[in-house]
Design a protein around this nucleic acid. Sequence first.
DNA 1: CTATCTGCAAACCGTTTGCAGCGTT
DNA 2: AACGCTGCAAACGGTTTGCAGATAG
Lengths: 144, 144
Amino acid sequence: MSIRVTSWLESLQAHGYRLTEARRAVVEVVATSKRALSPLEVYEIARRRYPALGLVSVYRTLEMLSALHLVQRVHQEDGCNAYLPSLEGHQHLLICERCRRVEYFDGDDLEALFARVGEQTGFEIRSHWLQLFGLCQACKQAVS
Amino acid sequence: MSIRVTSWLESLQAHGYRLTEARRAVVEVVATSKRALSPLEVYEIARRRYPALGLVSVYRTLEMLSALHLVQRVHQEDGCNAYLPSLEGHQHLLICERCRRVEYFDGDDLEALFARVGEQTGFEIRSHWLQLFGLCQACKQAVS
DNA sequence: CTATCTGCAAACCGTTTGCAGCGTT
DNA sequence: AACGCTGCAAACGGTTTGCAGATAG
């Protein structure tokens, strides 16, 4: 049992949510995924270990996890409905366009750029997104 | 008549599309907007000058403009269906969370970061998104 | 004159909601 | 035992498609 699964389940319980089979199944799939998964993909994978699961419970659990900042939504050119574990301190994503595998990386040095843009435009900058897209090592070889 | 409107209309014509009243109306709205607009917003604004316009034509024209890389889709936490002129050489966006006004800025210095991330992860990086969110000058004052 | 384009209505599809019964606490 | 949670089915909302009539070239 992954440490992240346990921690997410405890977090849900600590916020007054009950631990049900449906939630366990969803949490186990999303918390251990190295790929961004759509609700439907989560549903199909999680059903392998809990066949009674309904798609609606996937949506409701993802919403919960999102409110607790345990998952984040990933936006891509071809869809904006994929979810991924939120890793504290690793805000930036590198996503494989072929298999959706994700790497997290630190973007140091960016604060200076943001401050400069804020000054030049008069905007009060509140948040940012930095995402890179490409091919992971495995897909690079598979394509060539 | 904005230079961008003319240029977009010429571009459509050059690619074999006919210049109709519906397309003119949509192009005039999107090409001159400083805000990201949803298809429905484009429809409502464009109808002021061409009331017979249908929402379907807005979708079809936006798709065309997108294929010609004249507009880009903008993704935000609260929706991914807003469109904006694509400015050559100004890839990065700063979006006001309140009024959706957009500023474009150059992100120099970023190539080095991308190259480093590529090396460390083994990914072949093909594209990137950098978006900042905040409050524009006018909205900053309105809120406070 | 003809092929493209139009607006309408209906289909579509991912997501959300209402609800009666189930299962966690 | 109580009430939160479930899956189902239906509703919803944005987007796409089929089509007969309109219109740019």
